[in-house]
Design a protein around this nucleic acid. Sequence first.
DNA 1: TATTGTTATACTCTATAACTATA
DNA 2: TATAGTTATAGAGTATAACAATA
Lengths: 157, 157
Amino acid sequence: MTRRKQMEKLELDAESSHLEGLIGYNLKRAYVIVQTDFRRVLGDDGFSPRAYSALSLVAQFPNITQTGLSKMLGIERSGLVAIIDDLEGRELVQRTTVAGDRRAQALLPTPKGIKALAEATATVRAHENTLFADFSQEDRATLIELLQRIRGLGEDK
Amino acid sequence: MTRRKQMEKLELDAESSHLEGLIGYNLKRAYVIVQTDFRRVLGDDGFSPRAYSALSLVAQFPNITQTGLSKMLGIERSGLVAIIDDLEGRELVQRTTVAGDRRAQALLPTPKGIKALAEATATVRAHENTLFADFSQEDRATLIELLQRIRGLGEDK
DNA sequence: TATTGTTATACTCTATAACTATA
DNA sequence: TATAGTTATAGAGTATAACAATA
């Protein structure tokens, strides 16, 4: 038996592994695939997944505070600082003062940020459309619905 | 409008965000939920997701080499060293010589490793059964099937 | 007292490159 | 020349704790 045949057999057997029956394991492996493709396509524009998500939400919710954004992203306030520092350094987002609360920093997209977001969004959509070309619209809708139900499980705590 | 109402409105609007329509974004957020629960439940036994996966595959494919295992896990050979070091240090896995190739390290589970794996597997299954209590068997099967199709997309490259 | 943004710090996960011993 | 395991190193990503300014 050749080495190649041996590897194929190993991979075939893996399909029946109990590991293959775990949702967590499959989620992780699937996410790595999508994330790798995202970075390949958007890395040139300097957008990591989290930078894109942050800019996207700032554009959608102008004047959101950093604490509000960190909650939406599901990360700590402290972790958001570097993300916003980066976006502000590239003049895509602006920190502004909040009337009535001098502690808070409200976030606004710059015109340059809006333009960069539009371009990145077109690229992201193309990336997913290409990657998921074999998935029907129903497949995609079912997948997103199931994933959002999982996300909802985290809100009970 | 109260602060709480404002937050609720923000979260409601987020549902219709184009970010919410991205598979990658939902995959990431869903994975964080499941991984966090995995660590909460199995952290006490000293099993990270990757350590559990590695031990599980060593038990399923005894005498697999480190390179073979790293390919099955989708990580680099170099990254596997610390994982096996840890499992070997806890006497759950043994590195053994391969007849006919003195470069390779074949991996075998120890009796202690088999026992620990059995216990961890029971815990992992309980964790997923509890977390996904609201998901029907059909939901779970559909989800795993879709995720495995995504994983298959990564093999074309 | 509590909250916002920030800094310092550390830990996990992962990748790349180079080394060694074999093949 | 190529491969298996290893080491050194670095870079994301994230969390916790503490701090100053403000509420």
